[in-house]
Each structure stands twice: as structure tokens, then as C-alpha cells.
């Protein structure tokens, strides 16, 4: 009986320990390196766990076009658009934490890594994915917004070179409050769900 009790006790201890571990894993990392540096007065918005998806540059058989060199200046230009439309895409994800009492929003994203950069979301309805550009991504006051697969993302259109694990995508996010955030997103495989 004594033996049985001590077995039960150790089981209970193991259970408690695993519960503790589970809690630890769920809480946000506290010691990770900052993925963003405030470029101006946007220190109140914190960027965590930024990452970019690996992608292979493809020209869709149209070859390298001069339009690609001009990047986003070609927006709206017919041939530039078709080249971007034929290029390869990638996406950048992150968590944006707003430690202030005022709501904010990302209103623009820019990067040298791609011909065009847009804010997108995916609406899922009956297992049909409908990707849409959005004009802004809200960051609630004293809250956060998660850019993650199947939801909000920064879409890179017409990447200028292969994005491989180990590379970094530099992004500049413009906030509604006027500040900007520089984000260095490491290229990596999608973390397991």
C-alpha cells in the first residue's frame, strides 16, 4: 500500500510537472532577441517572432525584365504588373504587440526584396481560401495582432532573388500613428502548428 501510494505520488508529481511545462510553452518568449528596431517614434509597437517563407525566384518564362529593376516604381504600369504577376511570391509573418492605450495599425509595408509589397489576408469560408489585399492591419490598444499562415500576412510579389533559410528579409512597416518599424525577418521553414 505504501508502495502504491508512492507510485501515485510520483505520477501526480509528473502530471503537475507536465502541466507546468505546458504553461511554460504557451507563454510568449521573454528572452528572444528583438526582431525589430524602432526607426522613429514607434517604440510602443513591438514586433515578435518575425519570419519569412522560403521561395524560389521564377520568371515564368518571360526572362529578366528591366521593369523588375525599378521595383515598386512600376506599380500600375502594365508590363511591370504582368512581370510581377509572373514572378514568385513569398510572405512575411510576425506578431505585433501594442503596449499603449491607443489603437494603431500597419498601413504600408515596403521592402527591397520584392518588386511590390502588399498587406493581405485570407478569408476562409467552407474550406475555400479567398486571399484579399487589405488597406491596413489593426493593432488593438493594449493588445496584439498575429500575422500568421491562413490569415494576415505581408505579401512579397516578384521576389528579386531566392529566399533561403539563413537569409533575412528587411521590411519597413509604416504605422497609422506615423512611425515606422524596421523588421528583419529571418527566412525559415514554417514552424509546426
Amino acid at each position: 500500500m505504501q508502495y502504491a501510494r508512492s507510485v501515485l505520488c510520483s505520477l501526480g508529481f509528473a502530471l503537475a510537472l507536465s502541466l507546468l511545462c505546458a504553461c511554460g510553452a504557451a507563454s510568449p518568449p521573454t528572452s528572444s532577441l528583438p526582431a525589430a528596431t524602432p526607426a522613429s517614434s514607434a517604440a510602443a509597437i513591438r514586433v515578435e517572432n518575425a519570419w519569412a517563407r522560403p521561395a524560389t525566384k521564377m520568371d515564368g518564362g518571360m526572362g529578366e525584365s528591366a521593369d523588375m529593376q525599378h521595383g515598386s516604381e512600376q506599380e500600375g504600369h502594365a508590363s511591370g504588373m504582368s512581370e510581377m504577376a509572373m514572378g514568385s511570391t513569398s510572405a512575411v509573418y510576425m506578431r505585433l504587440v501594442n503596449a499603449t492605450a491607443s489603437p494603431d495599425a500597419v498601413v504600408r509595408a515596403a521592402s527591397e526584396a520584392a518588386a511590390a509589397v502588399e498587406l493581405h489576408t485570407v478569408e476562409m469560408e467552407n474550406n475555400v481560401a479567398r486571399m484579399r489585399p487589405v488597406s491596413q492591419i489593426d493593432i488593438p490598444a493594449n493588445g496584439m495582432v498575429e500575422l500568421k499562415p491562413g490569415g494576415f500576412h505581408v505579401m512579397l510579389l516578384g521576389i528579386k532573388q531566392d529566399l533561403e533559410p539563413g537569409d533575412t528579409v528587411a521590411l519597413t512597416l509604416t504605422l497609422q500613428s506615423g512611425g515606422t518599424l524596421n523588421v528583419d525577418a529571418p527566412v525559415q521553414e514554417q514552424p509546426a502548428q
Binding site: M84, A85, A116, V128, A129, M131, R132, P133, M155, L157
Partner: peptide, 12 residues
């Protein structure tokens, strides 16, 4: 309002 030209809604 996208450089993508068109997107494709599809069963995911």
C-alpha cells in the same frame, strides 16, 4: 488594388 492582377479563390 493589387499588383497581383488576379488571385484565385480555391478550396484549401
Amino acid at each position: 488594388d493589387s499588383s497581383a492582377g488576379y488571385l484565385v479563390d480555391h478550396t484549401a
